[in-house]
Computed example of a mutant assay.
Amino acid sequence: MCQGTSSAETTVGGIFGAMSHQLSLLDPVEAPPVHGRHNLFFALMPPPAVAEQVNRAAVQLRSTHGLTGNLIGADRLHVSLHAVAPDVSPLTVDAARFIAARVDAPRFEVVFDRVQSFDIHRAGTNPVVLWHSDHRSLTDLHRLHKLLHLEVRRAGLPLPANHGFNPHMTLLYDRKLVPAQAIEPVRWTATEFALIDSHVGDGYYECLGTWPLRP
């Protein structure tokens, strides 16, 4: 397992309390799981304490909104940084590790203050996510994504068709749509990023390495 570490206080208590009534939905940024393949990507993993508290709050959210989708386990909660490839060949993994080692970025705070669904117009596949209402608050996270993007391109790996970046943490997939709701901010200090091999559809993440962010 490769959950993140934190050098700062984490705050999650009561995160799914106060609600707003925003109904606008964001553009989709990810597809639902499909069995029988791998997906290699870079990610931030929240510290175990934060992941467990988010997972417990997601259980409450699921009950409140009558959702039926399976929750993503606390050990798989993550913020996707950049896709690498839909395979885990030795050459691809070596290239990804080389890319990660070239990235030089500082530690930073990750903050999410909203929960809502991304409407991707397919029944049962709408991701319910944590995100931030003002992406300017995630400048360092965007910078890390950009550095990885530049290194992936420099390494000659194929870039995804849609490589836009919308930082978020997926809690589950469900046919029902959850409107945007304000929450008590979820925050932690990211001290490293990871290379993840997702065994898609099997509910299993394999950590292939972590790289520190400098103090």
Rank of each mutant, 00 (worst) to 15 (best):
G4T: 05
T5K: 13
T11V: 08
G13P: 02
I15F: 03
S20D: 09
Q22C: 11
L23I: 15
S24Y: 14
V29W: 04
A31W: 08
A31E: 15
P33G: 11
V34D: 03
G36S: 08
G36T: 06
L40C: 11
F41K: 08
L44T: 09
L44H: 07
P48A: 06
Q53F: 00
N55P: 00
N55F: 13
R56D: 12
R56C: 01
V59W: 00
L61Y: 02
L61H: 01
L67I: 13
T68H: 12
N70R: 15
G73D: 10
R76Q: 14
S89A: 15
L91Y: 08
V93P: 03
V93Y: 05
A95S: 15
A96M: 09
F98C: 15
F98L: 15
R107M: 06
F108P: 01
E109Y: 00
V110T: 03
V110G: 01
R114G: 01
S117C: 10
F118W: 14
H121W: 05
A123V: 15
G124D: 05
T125I: 00
T125M: 07
V129N: 03
H132S: 13
K146W: 10
L150W: 07
R154S: 13
L159A: 11
A161G: 02
A161V: 07
G164D: 12
G164Q: 10
H168G: 02
M169N: 04
T170P: 02
L171V: 05
D174E: 11
R175K: 14
Q181R: 15
E184T: 06
R187K: 13
W188I: 04
T189C: 09
F193V: 07
A194D: 05
I196W: 07
I196V: 15
G201I: 10
Y204S: 12
Y205F: 15
R214A: 06
